[in-house]
Structure formats: structure tokens, C-alpha cells
Design a binder for these strands. Structure first.
Lengths: 336, 336
DNA sequence: GGCTAGTCTTGGATCGTTCAAGTGGTGCCG
DNA sequence: CGGCACCACTTGAACGATCCAAGACTAGCC
């Protein structure tokens, strides 16, 4: 820019008041008399004044920046939750004066990035998203008394006192299963993740719950595999041979794509011959033929709740509310 | 955090030197004698000192933050370039001391966000990504002398002097077409976007170039439609009926998914009966059965070039290099 | 001894904002 | 009329780093 932006002093001079009065006009308009407030606001508008972030940050010891660590894209899977979540997070946090700053995950030492940003007071708080397995980050951050909100429950430590927001995966799987039962299916298979995945077990429990609630057996109808398309394909082939299910509920769209593949190879029509429901409502589910039904996470609302929790956390005095659990929805397409 | 982080003065006291010396140790290590440098660095390590960002930003009039505007996810399409690009951008810019800050796009007035961030000196520069159609942002930013790097050529103003990085879409389409020709195809159809899309026309020109270079006619083999799956499906059905192509090259994976759908409905096998190649190498292309060949943009290298341009732009003195055009690669799968 | 170069210290100003204390003016009350 | 409270605004001092200029001390060299 040609000239440096106007400062408080410039506005003050123009409006014929002191710097502090301008500051108050911006931060505590209620303190000013009506006519001076208008005068100052006019001067601000004329000069196009906006407070200098760095100066404000220095003085208030806050950056109004939220740190979010992002992980490498997993190629070859259908996972793309973050896109929707991040966008919504940026929008809602922007509305209350915060910006989202990204930093890269260092694979081996997940804490390094967090530590530096804290010590340099670059961010006010974090949003921690990858809490799928045990989560050293959350424990470490909590120990440092660093403000953060987790997307994901503290599975391995129910006594954890940090704010969190999560999606009720069990309810999602249950919803999908009940939907299939209502359509007349009785032998509904489950393809999920390895047993050490809390999220996977949670989703699985929804399937179990729905089956048992309707007096249906789950014996031999479940398996746990890696989260890849081919694993989903192999698992569904095996299940079809050994347990003759008429429907599949999967822990992810990636697995569900594997099931669709198997059906295709066997000349079975998804939805008509065998029903399939995935999880996450990825772009893949939306675009693939003939359309993959999927459990959709309410990531937009989730971001809203995250920001709400952040506001509490960074408020004066800080306030930590209880964890928030949101219900997913079921997006029905031709496959189920 | 319990106590406030250490400051320059704390380190100085501990190391038994002056503040200035500590500052030099951090910013101009060459000025110090070997042994004192070590002593200061030890003190820094022991206290876990990191310069306060806000203070440094205020003094140096730089935030070391790069602004990136993100747009809402387009549901129902296969477009997900940003994920890979953003991750790579965060990594490479982090390596040279910059962080990426996101802000939301206000649909109607794309400039509002940029303006505020500039005036409040929140960011040092922008990365502008959505330059597909005429780009008011770049013109406006250039007019304000705001530093920015564009992902995308200045199509409508070749004389524009701002740094940019782009992928050679024509080369990508040409590569795909030549590949199909090499495999024996002669009637290769093109399904692209509306004529007012510069990127679409660029990619299309690659197809035309390859066809003509091999003495093949393009007559009646091309059409331009909206970027949706159904448009791709309808376009391919019409082309199959009227022009009997044996292969399709598409301007996007979204369109290619529509082609796959048509082939499926007609009992034609992708790759064996009719070849299909998409564009962008989206997750959908990677996951769908039987695998969609696609032109892959080198987003990782692209981010590296963007950061290189940013470094030049923000250096002393600023330096603007010529635009950089990167070649895409061809990811072959069963469909072609 | 005087000169120079290298290394570090010292004190101060500066960036632009907010905080804490202070100033003057007015109204109310005993 | 002195005193107190209150309003509306002003004043000086922080926040923590960087930048600049001037000075001090040592060592090496002629």
C-alpha cells in the first residue's frame, strides 16, 4: 500500500478527541456521549480506520486466532470431512471476531506444532480434530492449561474436563439399521474398523442396538477391517458367501464403495438386490452411480457448537460447558 | 497457562547478557562470538523462549500470515482440489516462517474480506485461488498494491504484472488425448464447460491440438455443458448416439462420472468398450469402480511455487518473477 | 602509546493499542 | 457551601520486540 494505514491518533486528531476516546468508541461505545460517538464514528469511516491487529494483540495478550492442525489428505479413500467442517468453522468463528490459522501436522511428534504456537502466543486456542485413537494432544494441552475444544469425545478418559463436541455415531448407525429393518431387511451386516478404534466401536454399537431391539441376531454378520476400498470389497464378498446378508451398513463410505464393487462384480443391483449404507456422506457417495445412501454428520452445526465452546473458554471469566453430542442425519439414495 | 511466557529480558538475565544480544542471537546469529551464542541459545532452550508474535509483528510491521479465502464446498460434485493444495501450502509456507490464515468468502462482495485484512494489517499477503472467470479480486488487489500470488493465470488481462502460478490444462487434456490415440482410439469426444470458462477453453484446446496433430477430426465430437454429473451423463449419451465416439476426455471428474453412468446404463464397460478420462484426480476418481483415469494437477509443487513467489514478493527488495506454468500428470486406471 | 576492529552494553525511541489513574465540570445532598 | 459521586474525556505508562546510535572494553598491530 502506498501510505501506511490510519491509526488511532489520526482518527483522534480528525475527530478532535483523544486517542482513548477513539478506542472507547470502538470497544465500549456505551461510554461515550451520543454526539461525540457519532463524530468519532464519522472520522473512522472517513479515514477507513481499522485497529492494527498486532498492536491490539500485544496489548490485550490475545491474538483472536484459532489454531487448527490439518493432516495430509488420505488419497484413495472417500474421507473428506474436513472440507465442510473447516469452511463452517471459518465462517462461524469469523462472525465473532476470530480467524482460523492452519498449521501442519508433524507426523511423529504431534505436539511440536502446538507447543510453539502457544509459547509464541500466536493463537488463543486450538480446535483439535484428530481424536480418533487415544489422544495425546488433548491430555497434553489440558496439562498445559491451554484452551482448546475437541471435535471428538474423550473416549479414553471420560473424566476429562475439556470442552468437546462430537457426533453421535452410534445413533447414526442405528438410524441406518432401523431404516433397513423398516424396509423389511432382517439379515443386515456390519463392516467396521479395527477394534482399537473408539469411533468404530461406537458406530458398531448402534448397529448392534438396533438389531437386538428388533429381535434380530447379529451373529456372524459383522467384521472389522482396515479402512480401504479393497478391504470393504473382500469383507462384503466373504459375508455374502458365509452369512447371506441382504443389506450392509458400513463404518465409512470408503468401505461402502468396496461393497458396491463386490455387488457389481456379482451382478447384484445396489438398493434392489442388496442395500448398502455408508457413513460420512462424502462427495463420493453423492456422485457415484447409483447414489450411495450415507449417514451425514452435521458438520455445520458442529462448527457452531465448537465456536460457542471457544467463546466460553476465552470469555471472562472462562466458562467450560458440558460436552455436546449432535445427531447425524440419514441421506437416502438409490443404494438403500 | 499458569505463568506468562518468558520474554527477551528473561533470557538476557539468565544468560548474563543484554536484551540486544539476545535479539541478535535470534535474528543475526552471525554477529555474536561463538561461545556467547551458545550461552544465549542454552538460556533460550532452558526457558523455552519464543519471540512474542504480536510484539514482533508490531515492530516489524509484518504478520507473517498469508490470507487464503475459502469457498463453500460444492456438494454433488467431485471437486476437491483445495484440500490437497491447502495442505501443501501450509506445509511449505510453514517451513519458511509463514502461516496460512483462512477467511470466508462473502458471496456477493468478494472484496470485503480482503480489504479489512489489509487495513488491519492482519496478513502480509494473499493467495488468490478463484480466478476461473474474470477476477475482480486480482485487479483490485493489484490496484491497491497489495501483495498477492494468484493460483490461476490472468486470463482476461495478459499484461497483468502480478505473480501467478498455474497448471497447464491444455497440456493435460492433450496428454490424455494422445494417450488414447496411442491406444488406437480415433473418435475421441470432448465434454467440457460453458464457453465463458477460460480454464474450460484452455483444456479443450489441448484436446483439439492433439486431435489435429494426429490428423483426426473433431467435428461433432465436442460439447459444452454445466459441471454436473447429470450433464455429463446426458452429453455422453447424446454423443454416443450421434457421433459414435470410442473414448471421452472430460474437463472434470464430475463430468466423467456422468459418462461412467451412461456407460453403465448401456451395459458398456469403461476401459474395455469405451475409454474415459477425467480431470483433477479427485477422490471420486480414485475410489470409484473400476477406477477413473484422470489428469492430476501437481498441487504440491504448485504450492511450493506459490510460496517461492510469496517470498520474492515479501523480500527486500520485493521481487516479482514471471508466471509459472506447471505440467500435470496422467493417472491411469481401468477406465482408460 | 595510539589506532582499529570486534564484541558487547546501554539507553532510548518506536510500532499502535489498551489500561489505570487523573482532570475538570456538573449535580445532589446535608 | 464543603463534600461526594458521577460523567465524559484526557494523560502517561505499559505490552515485548526491534532498531539505532553511542559508548566501553579487549585484543592485536604498527
Amino acid at each position: 500500500m502506498p501510505t501506511s494505514p490510519p491509526t488511532l491518533a489520526d482518527v483522534a486528531e480528525r475527530a478532535g478527541v483523544s486517542r482513548q476516546t477513539v478506542s472507547n468508541a470502538v470497544n465500549n461505545p456505551g461510554l461515550l456521549r451520543e454526539d461525540t460517538l457519532v463524530r468519532v464514528q464519522d472520522a473512522i469511516a472517513e479515514l477507513g480506520y481499522l485497529p492494527n491487529r498486532a498492536a491490539r494483540n500485544l496489548r490485550t495478550r490475545a491474538s483472536h486466532l484459532i489454531g487448527l492442525r490439518i493432516n495430509p489428505v488420505q488419497e484413495g479413500t472417500a474421507n473428506a470431512l474436513m472440507d465442510r467442517f473447516v469452511h463452517s468453522l471459518v465462517e462461524t468463528s469469523g462472525a465473532v471476531g476470530y480467524h482460523v490459522m492452519l498449521f501442519a501436522g508433524d507426523g511423529e511428534n504431534p505436539l511440536a506444532g502446538y507447543d510453539g504456537l502457544l509459547r509464541s502466543t500466536t493463537v488463543d486456542a486450538f480446535v483439535v480434530t484428530d481424536t480418533y485413537l487415544g489422544n495425546p494432544q488433548t491430555a497434553w494441552l489440558a496439562g498445559r492449561r491451554a484452551p482448546f475444544v475437541a471435535f471428538g469425545r474423550p473416549w479414553d478418559d471420560p473424566s476429562a474436563a475439556h470442552p468437546w463436541v462430537d457426533v453421535d455415531g452410534a445413533a447414526g448407525a442405528e438410524m441406518a439399521t432401523v431404516h433397513l429393518i423398516d424396509k423389511g431387511h432382517q439379515r443386515i451386516a456390519w463392516i467396521g474398523w479395527r477394534k482399537d478404534s473408539f469411533i468404530g466401536e461406537d458406530r458398531r454399537s448402534g448397529w448392534t442396538r438396533a438389531m437386538h431391539a428388533h429381535g434380530l441376531s447379529t451373529t456372524a454378520l459383522a467384521c472389522r477391517v482396515e479402512d480401504t476400498v479393497s478391504s470393504g470389497g473382500e469383507a462384503s464378498a466373504k459375508l455374502l458367501d458365509e452369512a447371506a446378508p441382504t443389506a450392509f451398513v458400513c463404518a465409512s463410505d470408503t468401505l461402502a464403495m468396496g461393497v458396491l464393487h463386490t455387488l457389481y462384480l456379482r451382478g447384484l443391483a445396489p438398493g434392489r438386490d442388496i442395500a448398502v449404507i455408508g457413513f460420512d456422506d462424502s462427495q463420493v457417495a453423492q456422485v457415484v452411480h447409483p447414489g450411495l445412501s450415507s449417514v451425514r454428520q452435521p458438520l455445520e452445526e458442529l462448527a457452531v457448537e465448537v465456536v460457542r465452546a471457544l467463546e466460553g473458554l476465552l470469555g471472562h471469566p472462562p466458562h467450560v460447558g458440558p460436552g455436546v453430542l449432535l445427531a447425524p442425519t440419514l441421506e437416502l439414495r438409490a443404494s438403500g
